[in-house]
């Protein structure tokens, strides 16, 4: 798909060289794709990331290279609509069933499974992606309506191999447990930064009848504005702390207490 070769960092190079030497050439030649990724995860689960901490962090921050979207057999698509849009800055062209949501298009057709289906009815926020700069629910968006739009998913938040500061803050503050709602939480939080900058109000805003101006969000404001993202593990206080730290750039302390 892409013909520009991937420049791996030395750490990433070591990781591939050690774990998947047989794929190293392919990765260097055609990029880190979904097949490589799945194979890597099959070789070693979470611990891999510890052993190759820096390489893994860089590697996983990267968007997996987009592959060509395989065509479905003709019977599999009714009322086909061809959609041209950008996904994580890459132009995509996909023929979809008119019923297909953006969420299912990302997950089942394009292979970007980061966005999650938690309820499929706009009641949990796990599918949150950023479309033309706004956080929206991909489960309530028909792919057919995305013609000409630009979609950013969790896979596209990092800059090359550097995590988005919001991602790093979530990691530091343990803003998740099972991780299933996390892509939606983080997309939501990233878009929230822009909303705060624009001075958008929320139901928690004390004085609405003033002109919008850039705001530093209080904990209550963060909580209200993130309430469209349900976290069943209950990581809410950690999510608030992560967002606070990402917004202010100042260290937010983590508290666990011990007593004899």
């Amino acid at each position: 798909m892409k013909n520009n070769k991937t420049k791996l960092t030395p750490e990433e190079h070591r990781l591939f060289g050690d774990l998947m030497p047989e794929e190293l050439e392919d990765v260097l030649h055609s990029g880190f794709n979904r097949r490589h990724f799945v194979k890597l995860m099959g070789l070693a689960t979470a611990g891999l990331l510890a052993s190759y901490a820096l390489g893994a962090e860089q590697l996983f921050a990267r968007a997996v290279e987009m592959e060509d979207i395989p065509n479905l057999i003709p019977e599999a698509i009714e009322n086909g609509v061809t959609v041209n849009f950008k996904v994580n800055s890459t132009p995509r062209n996909v023929l979809v069933d008119s019923r297909m949501t953006l969420l299912d298009t990302l997950r089942e057709r394009i292979g970007l499974t980061g966005s999650k289906k938690g309820c499929d009815h706009g009641q949990c926020g796990a599918c949150t992606v950023i479309v033309d700069g706004h956080r929206v629910l991909s489960c309530l968006t028909l792919a057919a309506t995305c013609q000409g739009k630009s979609v950013i998913t969790i896979e596209g938040l990092a800059k090359d191999n550097e995590l988005n500061p919001m991602q790093a803050a979530f990691l530091k503050h343990d803003g998740f447990q099972c991780g299933f709602c996390t892509p939606g939480q983080i997309c939501s939080a990233v878009a929230l930064m822009k909303e705060a900058k624009e001075g958008q109000a929320s139901f928690a805003t004390k004085k609405l009848s003033t002109d919008p101006k850039s705001i530093i969000l209080s904990e209550e404001e963060i909580a209200e504005r993130m309430s469209g993202n349900i976290c069943r593990c209950g990581a809410y206080p950690n999510i608030v702390a992560a967002i606070k730290e990402a917004q202010t750039g100042k260290n937010v302390p983590q508290n666990w207490l011990f007593t004899d």
Partner: peptide, 26 residues
Amino acid sequence: NHPLIRKNFPVLSKAILAGASAQIRN
């Protein structure tokens, strides 16, 4: 969030912001 609405019709802003979630309002 329209400045004219926040200024002259704040009850409308407040009611909109009371509904659903940020994503849905977007």
